[in-house]
Simulated scan of single mutants.
Amino acid sequence: MVTQPTFKTLEHRGWSERARIYDRYSGRFCRYGVAALIDAAGISRGQTTLDVCCGTGEASLAAAACGAIVTGVDFSEDMIVAAQAKGSNVNFQVGDAEALIFEDAAFDRVINNFGTLHLADPERAIAEAARVLKPGGRYAFTVWRGPEIAPLFRIVPEVVSAHGTLEVDLPPAPPMFRFAEREEAMRVLSAAGFTDVTFGDIPATLDFPLAELSDFFRHAFVRLTMVLDRQEPTARARIEEALGERFQDFTDNGIVHLPLPALVVSAARA
């Protein structure tokens, strides 16, 4: 019997395939969270810091630039190789956010830049962050805001539904914007042993040439690319054409400037 892929295995495959080009595509807008993340976590010189879902290491490098002693972990070996190639003093290693190999109370700070929405069991990952933090240590993560204020996450499902289908052969995914809901974030963090929860808005923008829409969407996203790849060819063409039309309102001199607001959430380990 053929084993069907899980959400986690598909995420792993998708991001591993994009590791060498991550900075050119996804990294261009994910890096907007880094400065806010470092500030919210209160990272400073000498602090032991764990960067979970570190990807190609941008947040890890920023924390190290503050003088922190940084370990970066990602479930994709290809991402870790890309991070290590940047030649820093960060200890990059393969690791699972939902089953960290570190001892209890090993770190002063834990950060996660836009990785939470790619986790199959984010509550477990948050509990793991609490476990490896020292009492009084701080945890911070970034998440995208939902479709009510982020045009990308409203326009894309509307267009796909109008010209194709969202009912494709993919395993169910966790709610993408769950932790952008402040009450839900506070509830889960409190249950994991966190206190002093704070929130901060991040004004981010997704910029790409309108003429390169198809290329950008194929390489910058994983779940969305899988949805688009499962459309009939004629439907896929109509979807891309309709997306280009909808993005015209955000386009200047051929460059799309799409608001992509985010949220930084931080909390202290009790």
Rank of each mutant, 00 (worst) to 15 (best):
Q4A: 15
T6G: 12
L10S: 04
E11V: 13
G14R: 03
S16L: 09
E17W: 01
R20V: 11
Y22F: 15
Y25H: 13
S26I: 01
S26E: 12
G27M: 11
F29G: 02
C30K: 11
C30I: 13
R31Y: 10
G33I: 07
G33P: 02
A35N: 14
I38F: 05
D39I: 00
T49R: 01
T49G: 02
D51F: 01
C53P: 05
C54E: 00
G55R: 06
G57R: 07
S60P: 03
S60Y: 03
A63F: 02
A64T: 06
C66R: 15
G67D: 09
I69Y: 07
G72K: 01
V73W: 06
V73A: 00
D74Y: 11
S76L: 04
S76I: 06
M79L: 12
M79P: 07
I80E: 08
V81K: 14
S88C: 06
N89M: 13
V94A: 11
G95L: 07
D96F: 03
E98H: 00
I101W: 04
F102H: 12
F102E: 04
F102R: 02
I111H: 04
G115W: 03
T116D: 06
L117I: 10
L117E: 07
L119K: 04
D121I: 01
E123K: 08
R124K: 14
A125K: 02
A125G: 11
A127V: 05
A127I: 01
A130M: 06
V132K: 02
L133S: 08
P135C: 12
G137I: 05
G137W: 02
R138N: 08
A140L: 09
F141C: 06
V143N: 08
W144C: 02
G146C: 08
E148N: 13
A150N: 15
A150C: 15
P151H: 10
P151N: 12
F153N: 07
I155R: 02
P157T: 08
E158G: 06
V159P: 03
A162R: 15
G164H: 08
L166G: 12
V168F: 06
L170R: 05
L170T: 06
L170C: 05
P172L: 10
F177Q: 07
F177L: 03
R178K: 15
R178Q: 14
E181W: 03
R182L: 08
R182S: 09
A185S: 14
M186S: 15
L189P: 00
S190N: 14
A191H: 12
F199N: 09
F199W: 12
D207V: 09
D207R: 14
L210Q: 10
L213T: 15
F216G: 00
F217L: 15
A220T: 03
F221Q: 09
V222Q: 07
T225Y: 11
V227Y: 01
V227H: 03
D229E: 15
R230A: 05
P233C: 10
A235G: 09
A235W: 00
A237L: 10
R238V: 03
E241T: 13
L243N: 09
L243A: 05
E245C: 01
R246A: 10
F247I: 02
D252F: 04
N253I: 04
G254C: 07
G254M: 02
I255P: 01
I255K: 08
V256K: 04
L263G: 00
L263I: 03
V265C: 05
A267T: 05
A267M: 08
R269Y: 04
A270Q: 13
